[in-house]
Structure formats: structure tokens, C-alpha cells
Design a protein around this nucleic acid. Structure first.
Lengths: 249, 249
DNA sequence: TGTTAATTTTGATTCAGATCAATTAAAGCG
DNA sequence: CGCTTTAATTGATCTGAATCAAAATTAACA
């Protein structure tokens, strides 16, 4: 459950690297395409963009033209309320696709902010639709990505609707762990890119509660916390903490 | 915010009724298509299915073949946890599209249960993808539907993550009100099809809390509650109750 | 490098909503 | 129609997380 805009579980190692413009292999889209198709797709996603830490990839209300595939870095998406407070709707890392929400109204419905220096590929949506007409597997794949985002959101709804603080944090850490693993990083040791407040916003908790939950898990020797650095000592017990283990797979 | 799998706000009155098999006008898909295109689409969605109150449209884990467009009735979708408790992920009414979550893995990720006798049109997904290749506006429209579901889910996440009980119920009622209005029913008076427990599951509250929130709103003369029958006396004040009014539009 | 600002931790207290419990009302059904 | 089951309301109590508050730590930056 939790975050998974894209499809890292798919093995993309078989993709041949014929793309000159942009290393598509890291991206989420070209799964299962042949050389020629990758070439076509590559022409579409050629435009790269760098965002500095703290910078905006897009803002709520801004015009939608393109999806963004994250090549590197780490971003959050959040909706801003009148009163100034923000609700984080997701954390996003390499290979994931941003902007799906904006297709609905041709307007971005959330802010996307880089939590560390990041690089994205811009994918003009009109062009993506166009070429997906001639490459059925690309269309199918894109639909799966959108669907997966819906499934993820349902998972978060379940988390927010029925789990308690410690379960939420366990779920969150396990989700991060899995996503780091899929990208070839350690599943048991990583650095958080977001603050306690941002975690809290995402999990529907106050930052103090997040901090306390971290401390609690550390006291039980399930994890070791050193500020932003997390070490998972006992992943099995962390899974137990989640309670209904249906959420994360 | 809250429920809006589909796109009732679009005016479909201009659609010419050339479809022999199934009255597509009620459905969400054929917006902006010409006669011939509607004909093509009509051939795909011809298969109808009735579900009795309490019956399943699909179950978690079952094979995904088709999306379902609701022609009449009222359904809920919910995910079942190990412990037997269920989390309602949405309530769905005429014109909305079910099954989007299943595209991701070709397996349904939730149960869809009729809360009253309902009728749906089955839309074989492979065929939909196929014809959407030749009808760009249909493809675009389908993408907007998926995207809108993502936006809706983000709205629910915001609700679950940051609103308190009374705000959640106000938001829920206003959402229902709007959806009834869009279908030509009264926005100020309607019957709930779901129990307090199901509302609570959806809103992340216990049924007692839902009941108390109803009573509170009634005491303040904002609504009148008679079991499942709801009358909204002061929609403006109900909106105020929601707090951050960004959610519902 | 020193100074300031932001973040994190921890404690004390409060409160919204959960839980427990009992009653009332409505819906099925033989 | 009366009986049983299910759903809804309301009250009393408890509890997990919010809030308030202060100290400690880390990061930012001139």
C-alpha cells in the first residue's frame, strides 16, 4: 500500500538501450517495447528538467501539458488548503510518473515540490496519447500505471481510515523500504528526505505523534533512528506492527 | 471531493440517440462522440447485467475482464481485511464507472456490492482499449475518468487525514447532494442507501460517531434526519461546517 | 565559524472520538 | 401479524492522539 505511482516491480532489465536522447531504461513507460517503439517514445520524452531542492515542478492550478517521469531525486505532492496548511498526498522517487491527477481538468490539482535536487523527463501528454494509439502495449502499460495509482490511493485511504499511529508509521517505513529495494538500494537502511511534519501530514498525524512513534519503535529495537537516518533491525516485527498485513506486499 | 468516479458534470444532452442496443446516453463514456462512433461503442457495451441488493458485482481477487458502467442503482466498493472488518472505498451511482482499480493487475482489488437492486453495462476492457485507438476523443475521455478518480481519492485522503468527524459528515452529505443534483434529483432531500456503519467505514469513523454527528447537525437545524431520509435545510451552513471548503466544488 | 532558524524530541495536559452498554426503532420473514 | 434480527440512537467512560510547552539537536548561512 502507500506510495507506488509507477511500476518498479516490473523487470526492465530486458529493455535494449537504443534510445539516444534520454535514458529511458530508468523510466516507467517503456516496459516491453521493441527497439523501434522505444525510439518513438524516446523522441517524445527528450526534454529534461532539473528542479532544485525546495523548487516546484508544478503548482496547483497551473496549466497541464505534460506528465513528468522522475529520473532522479525525490519529490512530494501536496494540496494546499485555504488556511495555509498542507496535506501531503504522496512521496515520489525515481521511475515514478507525476501529473496523472491533472489529466482530469487539464489543470494541476496539487503542488509537486522537490525534497532534494531532482531531474525529470517531460512527457507531453498529447503526444503520449498519440503514439500510444499506435503502440498498444504502451497504452496498456499507461493504463496500468493510472490504475496502480488508484489502488495505491485506496491503500492510503485504508491506512488513514483504520490504522493507528504506530501502524501507520510501520506501514510507511515498510513501503519506503520496499521501494528503495526495488531501486537497488538497501531495504534496511536509508535516509528520509522529508521532515516529521511532512510524514505526519501524509499519515494524518501530528509531527509530535510521528516522533513518538519513531521513538517507540526504537525502544522496542525494531528500528534505529538517527534523525533522518533509519535502520530497520527487525523487518518481520515491523510487519507485525502493521496489524492487518494486507496493505503492503 | 469524495465520490466522483465519473463525469456527470458534462452535459450529455447533445448526444444523439442512435444506439440501438443499450441506452448509452446514461453512461459516462460517449461524451462528444458522433453517431458512428457511438454505434461502435454501443456494440462493445451491449451486455447488461442485473445485481440484486446485497449481491456482488465483482469480488476481490476475481479475474478482471470488464469495466462496469452503472445504468441504475447504487453500489459500494470495499476492501476486506484479514480480521474480517471492511473498509468502504467508495459509493457509486448511475453513470459511474467501476473496475478501474483492476486494470493494474488484471485482478479486482476490491468487492463491489449492490446497496440496492442495480443494473450495469459490461464493457470488455480489451475492446474499449481497441476502439479507443481509433476514437481519440474516447481515449482522452477515458483518461479523464481515470484521472478524476485519482483526484477524488486525493480528496478523500485529505478528508481522512485532516478533517474532524462533523466536517467529514458535512463533506459526505454535500458530495451526495451534488451528485443527486447532477442526476436530476433533489439536492436537498434524499434517501441514504447505506448504513451508518458503512458511512463510518468510508469516513474513518465509528458508527456511533456518525450517528452523533447526524444528531448534532440536526440539533443545529442544518439538516433533518429521519433514519435514512435526509433533508438539508441550510446548505450554506452545511458548507461552512466543512471548514476548508476547498474540497467540494 | 559563529549565529540564527528550523527541526526534533520529550513531557504534561486536554479532548475528540472509540469503546462499552443499554434502549429504541425499523426491517425481514415465517 | 407478531416475532426475530438488524440498525440507530444516546449515555457513560476510557484512551490515543492533539495540543501546549520547553529543551535539545541539526541545518542554514552570513
Amino acid at each position: 500500500m502507500l506510495n507506488d505511482t509507477s511500476l518498479h516491480h516490473l523487470d526492465i532489465s530486458h529493455i535494449r538501450s537504443s534510445c539516444a536522447t534520454c535514458s529511458l531504461r530508468e523510466l516507467c513507460l517503456p516496459v516491453g517495447l521493441n527497439d523501434q517503439e522505444i525510439q518513438v517514445l524516446g523522441d517524445v520524452v527528450s526534454h529534461k528538467r532539473k528542479i532544485q531542492r525546495g523548487g516546484y515542478l508544478h503548482r496547483t492550478g497551473s496549466n497541464f501539458q505534460s506528465l513528468f517521469a522522475i529520473r532522479s531525486g525525490f519529490l512530494k505532492t501536496c494540496v494546499l488548503e485555504e488556511d495555509g496548511r498542507q496535506q501531503v498526498t504522496g512521496f515520489h522517487m525515481t521511475g515514478e510518473l507525476l501529473g496523472l491527477d491533472a489529466i482530469s481538468t487539464d489543470t494541476h490539482t496539487c503542488d509537486a515540490i522537490a525534497l532534494e535536487d531532482s531531474e525529470v523527463c517531460e512527457i507531453p501528454f498529447a503526444k503520449l496519447e498519440e503514439i500510444s494509439r499506435t503502440i498498444p502495449s504502451l497504452m496498456r502499460h499507461f493504463h496500468k500505471i493510472m490504475s496502480r495509482e488508484i489502488v495505491r490511493d485506496h491503500g492510503v485511504m485504508l491506512l488513514l481510515g483504520s490504522m493507528k499511529a504506530e501502524e501507520r508509521l510501520a506501514s510507511f517505513l515498510l513501503n519506503l523500504s520496499r521501494r528503495f529495494l526495488m531501486r537497488g538500494y538497501s531495504e534496511s537502511e536509508f535516509n528520509l528526505r522529508m521532515t516529521r511534519e511532512e510524514i505526519g501530514s501524509y499519515l494524518g498525524l501530528k509531527l509530535e505523534t510521528v516522533s513518538r512513534a519513531f521513538s517507540k519503535l526504537q525502544d522496542e529495537n525494531i528500528i534505529a533512528v538517527d534523525n533522518k537516518h533509519i535502520q530497520i533491525n527487525d523487518i518481520a516485527r515491523l510487519r507485525l506492527k502493521m496489524g492487518n498485513s494486507s496493505c503492503i506486499t
